[in-house]
Design a protein around this nucleic acid. Sequence first.
DNA 1: GCCATCAAAAAGTCAGACTTATATGTCACA
DNA 2: TGTGACATATAAGTCTGACTTTTTGATGGC
Lengths: 245, 245
Amino acid sequence: MALFSSYPERMSTPGRGLHGHVLESLGPSITAGEYPPGSVLRTDELAQRFEVSRSVMREAVRVLESMHLVESRRRVGVTVLPTDRWNVYDPQVIRWRLAGADRPRQLRSLTVLRCAVEPVAAGLAAKYATAEQCAELTECALGMVANSRGHRLEGYLFHDVAFHRIILNASGNEMFARLGDVVAEVLTGRTHHQVMFEDPAPEAVTLHVQVAEAVRAGDTVRAESLTREIVLGALEELDVLSPEP
Amino acid sequence: MALFSSYPERMSTPGRGLHGHVLESLGPSITAGEYPPGSVLRTDELAQRFEVSRSVMREAVRVLESMHLVESRRRVGVTVLPTDRWNVYDPQVIRWRLAGADRPRQLRSLTVLRCAVEPVAAGLAAKYATAEQCAELTECALGMVANSRGHRLEGYLFHDVAFHRIILNASGNEMFARLGDVVAEVLTGRTHHQVMFEDPAPEAVTLHVQVAEAVRAGDTVRAESLTREIVLGALEELDVLSPEP
DNA sequence: GCCATCAAAAAGTCAGACTTATATGTCACA
DNA sequence: TGTGACATATAAGTCTGACTTTTTGATGGC
């Protein structure tokens, strides 16, 4: 099926090279709060701990610095920055945080972001989606229907992710399009790490089909409000499992 | 005035260190499309061009790689990635792109993002804003009023940026809060690089005052719809100057 | 108590040698 | 002529050690 060839599985970038390996270990530690803000690390010490040369360690620190997770200053060391400085939109940071302890809070703030963005994106998609995108969209919706019963969660997830990706891409807005990875992480996290014994809610499935129809019909306001229902439903579902105002 | 002490002027991080200086030159070149996607650079050659050691150049490349602007592969070199791979939410990438040639398109996609996010953020702010945040908000609104006539653009801009930052922070959502820098860049760009001979539109000023009121009153739907008016107005204004559907 | 000066500490920079992966070309064989 | 194994060259990756620069904090004189 050529339609999905545009979604290669390059979602996660495993630590290539020594510096990547170090990052994959040190990054999650920091985002998990293992080193509280203000903690000071020393490059040399880290290099010894990870058994790599200083050059490699310096490269890793540079990357962490570009994510604003740490700040490197002369005569002081590598200081861990407070959370509100972090580049929380960096896909790698998102992945690290979703893998950590405060996954629920993370999942929630990302879902609230979805609530804001996806309805607007769907409205734009109804305006600008190509015929091919409309076809892909309905195909995904049908795929969701086909996998909506009988505990076929993986198949459902696959089409769900693809569906939302297409919406975000079809909006024609680059900033929206780049949130496709974020949505994918959220949906995957929800499916894999939550109690999901039951099949997906039938209403949600129906809504997806209707969104696909609305987009094809060019009905912007309907596409927007239907998508809002979908994503508000997801938020509600999240609040049921881990309630916090 | 202690209210604004929480908004230090650390918005732009000038290239500290040699590697930062290289980045500040090479980054914009790439985002400007000077090296088309697929172009191959060699670390050694770059090091020579910028007259730095390879260690420094490698650190710079690592940072560009973490932004997904380039990809470094053995035996090949440093390949420039296509636009749809870039981390377009990275504040540094945003700044580089806003400084480049396709500023208008960039400004527009960011404003569309604002249209999606800020109304929702304002709604949440009406729910969760502290008394102090409400006070700061009205103060900013008054500051905008005070600078709305007589070509006092800088003063107006200052309070405008602060206003939207407070809204985004008061929403209580981390992802929204981190868009404060983006909004600041957009507003600054609009003021400094567009034909802005005239004073800001009186309706916009009024709307800001009303939003501050709505937030203080805890009127979520009113805060949301008023903010939507503000930001849709900004989008309209943008389309008037550089019309593209 | 305050300011200038100094020394130590840690990051920053550089140069050179070496290792490793890999794209590509070569050649034998089918 | 096409195909597979093999060799080679290339550019990134890694390590090491020496040196420089900035900045903190301590020391000491006023």
